[in-house]
């Protein structure tokens, strides 16, 4: 379990992470989603004790990371696949990491096998592809068989097979009751892997909720309508929560109303309708809407967030 309380990080006048509070629960995959530069990596580095918070605190399994006697058994992290001496072999890198905790070589061989590094384990890391580097980073993260696994953009540079493998790995680890915290800037990736999402934008938490409820909260029904006299139709539909946008003289997009209701009103008003398409807001769309909101209507999005956050997690 990871608990952040009012965690902040400022670099000079720039605030990278702005008083964020969240809890990452064990037994499920929690996605940490945000555009590049939103503060994901900085937050993860603070969790792992690499960066000192400017304010607030963060604990892992009840204590600050550095306060654990055997930190690699508590938390395994892939923060930066390049955090390896380029002239050392993958095997020796793992052996050096393992040695700090008295982890036997047997486990080193296990994680090499698990991550499919076998054929390149004795080669220098400098020559690794991005994908192989990611696999080595994941091998290091799993070395201590940790309760909590933190992976920063783990699928970056992986081939499709590797991407699937990471998804299964994350799900399996969560299935074993571990805490899995996974960052990405790709919503589609999160949709396939995560159970729960923490969305961050400009250093602030925008949403913290189960993945489905984020989609639901963001996607009000929308319908695209082509009709001969759209104004008559809109006039008849006008009511609470219904908004519309005229795109072309005979093309409108109506929000806050179901397609069936539009059809009923059109029939009653005798308006000729020649297209009626329900628009589903995808997770990607929900994400865009969330992060756009963060930029344009900062305070409003934040108040939405707190209701989301507080209804969840019980």
């Amino acid at each position: 379990m990871i608990e952040a309380q009012a965690l902040s990080k400022r670099y000079g006048r720039k605030t990278a992470v702005d008083t964020v509070s969240f809890t990452v629960q064990p037994g499920r995959v929690t996605g940490f989603l945000g555009p590049n530069g939103a503060g994901k990596s900085t937050t993860m580095r603070m969790i792992m004790g690499l960066d000192n918070p400017t304010g607030g605190r963060v604990t892992v399994n009840g204590r600050p990371y550095a306060a654990h006697k055997a930190p690699l058994h508590e938390v395994g992290a892939l923060l930066d696949a390049k955090a390896v001496h380029t002239r050392r072999s993958a095997y020796n890198h793992l052996r050096a990491m393992a040695a700090t905790h008295g982890i036997p070589n047997r486990r080193v061989n296990d994680v090499i096998e698990l991550t499919g590094l076998g054929p390149v384990a004795r080669k220098r890391v400098g020559g690794f592809s991005l994908g192989m580097g990611q696999r080595l980073g994941i091998a290091v993260a799993l070395l201590g068989d940790p309760h909590t696994v933190i992976l920063d953009e783990p699928v970056n540079g992986l081939d499709p097979e590797g991407v699937q493998w990471v998804r299964h790995l994350a799900r399996d680890l969560a299935g074993e009751g571990r805490t899995v915290f996974l960052s990405s800037h790709l919503m589609s990736e999160m949709a396939l892997t995560a159970d729960h999402l923490i969305v961050i934008g400009r250093g602030r938490i925008i949403a913290d909720a189960p993945i489905q409820s984020i989609i639901d909260a963001q996607s009000t029904a929308r319908v695209r309508v082509r009709a001969e006299r759209p104004q008559d139709l809109l006039g008849a539909l006008a009511g609470d929560g219904v908004t519309s946008q005229v795109l072309e003289p005979e093309l409108v997009e109506i929000s806050g109303v179901e397609a069936r209701r539009v059809a009923e009103v059109a029939l009653r008003e005798r308006v000729l309708v020649y297209e009626l398409t329900p628009l589903q807001l995808s997770l990607e769309g929900a994400y865009m809407q969330l992060t756009r909101g963060e930029v344009e209507y900062e305070s409003r999005s934040l108040s939405n967030t707190s209701t989301l956050a507080s209804t969840e997690g019980r």
């Binding site: 690499l50 690699l72 955090a83 390896v84 890198h93």
Partner: peptide
Amino acid sequence: TGMIRSTMV
């Protein structure tokens, strides 16, 4: 090389 981050973790 960035190895220091692995060491410090």
